[in-house]
Design a protein around this nucleic acid. Structure first.
Length: 268
DNA sequence: ATGGTGGTCCTACCA
């Protein structure tokens, strides 16, 4: 069973890239962030043609927006509101796979602006509050040891030294500051999640999922960050087979600044 | 070098 997460940065502009990625990766579950598309404008027909039985999406005009497309019938959907804001940053579904109930959570964590000080930057304050509320959502759950849960998304934080091109140069840059990383780790621990990428690939090598549009040559300078994540519950981690990141897609024509992150699971 | 580029939808705002 394959789960793919990708910050698409406009699903309508890049619908052909989505089709190519689906053809190439054949995901069971595709989670998108920054669809930048109202539900009434969402290209549901295209997702149907790609082979998805159920596609759930919602968004606000211009900003954020999340989608989960599934090749297995979706049994239930939840959308959680964080920080009392009218935005579209979370969606979760449940579905059956080989008679097992699996939950998928798709998150788009606020980017947080430029200034890494919650006292003067309301966007950064929002980001920290969002992470706190997200952690609370999971720490309230009782079934931590028995549930098959996958949490994916653009979490807009690169937590480890090898998740950024230069730990030294980014430690005061939003996405890699100590305060955010602490909140993210608390979020991770709220349901005893495992970081699937690092669990399968170790902590030694540099791994990125995002390269800025502002670089002259993203590939040559390679100043990336690992902002996109796949987390698995303890029980789900037993079924985790492998993970990989589709870096080459950053080099496609009119790319998103993020690339798809993939996790494969095996069930008997 | 406090820039750079790329989204949405027309004017700023977001990343």
């Amino acid at each position: 069973m394959r789960v793919v997460t990708w910050n698409i940065n406009s699903v309508r502009l890049r619908i052909n890239s989505v089709k190519k990625v689906v053809k190439k990766l054949n995901p069971d579950i595709l989670c998108l962030q920054e669809t930048k598309c109202l539900k009434e404008d969402f290209p549901f027909k295209d997702f149907e043609k790609m082979g998805f039985i159920d596609t759930e999406a919602f968004g606000i005009k211009g900003y954020n927006g999340v989608c989960i497309a599934s090749k297995h019938p979706i049994n239930s959907i939840k959308k959680h509101i964080f920080c009392n804001k009218d935005d579209a940053r979370h969606m979760s579904i449940k579905f059956l796979y080989k008679n097992r109930k699996i939950s998928i959570h798709n998150f788009y964590v606020p980017a947080g602006g430029d200034e890494p000080d919650p006292k003067i930057n309301v966007k950064f304050k929002h980001k920290l509050k969002f992470l706190e509320e997200a952690a609370k959502l999971f720490s309230n759950k009782k079934s931590v040891n028995n549930d098959l849960v996958v949490l994916v998304g653009d979490l807009n934080i690169a937590p480890h030294e090898m998740d950024v091109w230069s730990h030294q140069q980014l430690k005061n840059i939003v996405s890699h500051t100590e305060i955010e990383i602490k909140k993210l780790k608390k979020f991770l621990k709220s349901f005893q999640f495992e970081d699937a990428i690092r669990l399968t690939q170790g902590y030694e090598k540099k791994i990125y999922s995002w390269w800025s549009y502002r670089a002259k040559d993203w590939k040559k300078s390679n100043r990336g960050r690992r902002l996109d994540h796949i987390w698995v519950s303890q029980k789900m981690s037993k079924h985790l087979e492998k993970t990989f990141i589709e870096k080459n897609i950053r080099g496609w024509k009119r790319p998103s600044d993020h690339v798809p992150v993939v996790a494969d699971f095996k069930f008997n």
